[in-house]
Design a protein around this nucleic acid. Structure first.
Lengths: 232, 232
DNA sequence: CGCTATGTTGATCCATATCAATAAGTGTGG
DNA sequence: CCACACTTATTGATATGGATCAACATAGCG
């Protein structure tokens, strides 16, 4: 594995506090791989053989049941995914596919569990990471159960705006097809939802969004730190 | 705190592997309290001062937004809740209220974090617990996004049946009003959903459910271990 | 360029929410 | 122990959000 990748991974909260010896040991068993877009990296139900770290590109976590499927989340660099399955030595609950060309580190799950057992600092980092993941899903569930699709879209736009720097103009981070699935609606309904936000000053042109009247949109969306904040 | 409570808590996965000295230390700062039904123990948004452990009774975790509210989960003895908030020293994402008369242990969050920092075994137990909580929420989210309300009810009945021992007759674990909220629907819709399951052999009489034709119901519900299993 | 995937728009259908009325429990005090 | 009040559950009628189906437009991409 190239040195540069090493550095990026080491900087992750998850790995930054562990003993250097243990980190080296983890990395020795790991390997980096480049994947083209639309490759299914893991399939739900399979045993969790590797902890994955996204170095570049982006990953869609999705699930299927009875012929339907839904996007659960998107993973962007640099972060890990399917940590919980690795820790519990349990089957993946979600599938993962590359959205674009992506560079992924694969760390054997048994190595992670072994180091986890002997390195208290690593174990503590994992706790913090997992607690954040947990809280993220709880927020998503609140979003789904307490809001209509129009409200979910409005709040999503406000979140994405902040993520993009807070300007009145910004781009969607992925295609509308997938955004619809993430927000729990159909593409057709998303199209109409965008129209439904026009009265609140939202303009759409391709992936480019313009927030015409911040206050008006926020008055409608009623964002809450307990649902929409990234890391509390 | 009485000795018996001590024992019950110590037996929890979360506390069973930690050093005795640390357990004693945690318990010294903790206290037990009895609450009547319908008491709001914690409110979302407040700082997480205590880790809670339910010794008896039952607790409803719920959330509110913009005048609406929804039941997120039910906590039954003997287990903990709001562990993630405690660990992250972050505000509660959910409120909690007693459903019936309940006996609760309150462990100061700062004590939990302090012991967590010095006891690797405790940290590891927390990881396992959190990973399970995380996976439980992911399953719930899949249930919500991939299934109709009728399918959610059907699968809920099958889960509850298993939990109750697997017999063809069993009782709902809480009132229908709350079940509706947990399943993400209105009470009226739940009433109709029960009727909608009659063709598959489901009979309802008060809180008593009878599964007339197991195979038929399962054929409709299509339960999946990746959504409906309790602890994988 | 044309081909294919994605996005939009319109028409319609269906699931679920809402509103309203009644019924059935549940608990309380006389 | 019963009558009353209050909450919860059911049922019906209706409204609406969202899904589905179909047609068309648009945008990437080879």
């Amino acid at each position: 594995m190239p040195e540069s990748a090493y550095q990026d991974i080491r900087k992750l909260h998850l790995f930054s506090n562990m003993a250097d010896e243990h980190f080296q040991s983890l990395m020795r068993g790991a390997y980096v791989q480049n994947f083209p877009p639309q490759i299914e990296l893991i399939t739900e139900g399979e045993p969790s053989d590797f902890l994955h770290v996204v170095l570049s590109g982006s990953i869609d976590l999705f699930s299927q049941w009875n012929g339907r499927d839904t996007s659960m989340a998107t993973v962007r660099p640099v972060s890990t995914f399917i940590l919980a399955a690795t820790i519990n030595n349990a089957p993946y609950l979600m599938s993962a596919r590359t959205l674009e060309k992506s560079r992924i580190v694969l760390v054997p799950s048994q190595d992670v569990r072994a180091i986890f057992d002997i390195d208290g600092n690593f174990a503590r980092s994992i706790v913090t990471e997992l607690a954040q993941c947990y809280r993220a899903v709880v927020k998503t569930q609140k979003d789904l159960k307490l809001r209509t699709s129009l409200e979910r879209l409005a709040n999503y736009l406000l979140r994405q705006q902040r993520r993009a720097g807070g300007g009145t103009v910004f781009d969607l981070e992925f295609e509308k097809r997938r955004l619809a699935s993430v927000l729990g609606m159909t593409p057709e309904n998303l199209s109409r939802a965008f129209k439904g936000l026009q009265p609140y000053g939202v303009t759409v042109s391709g992936t480019r969004i313009t927030i015409g009247d911040q206050a008006d949109l926020e008055k409608f969306a009623k964002p809450s730190p307990l649902i929409d904040d990234f890391s509390t």
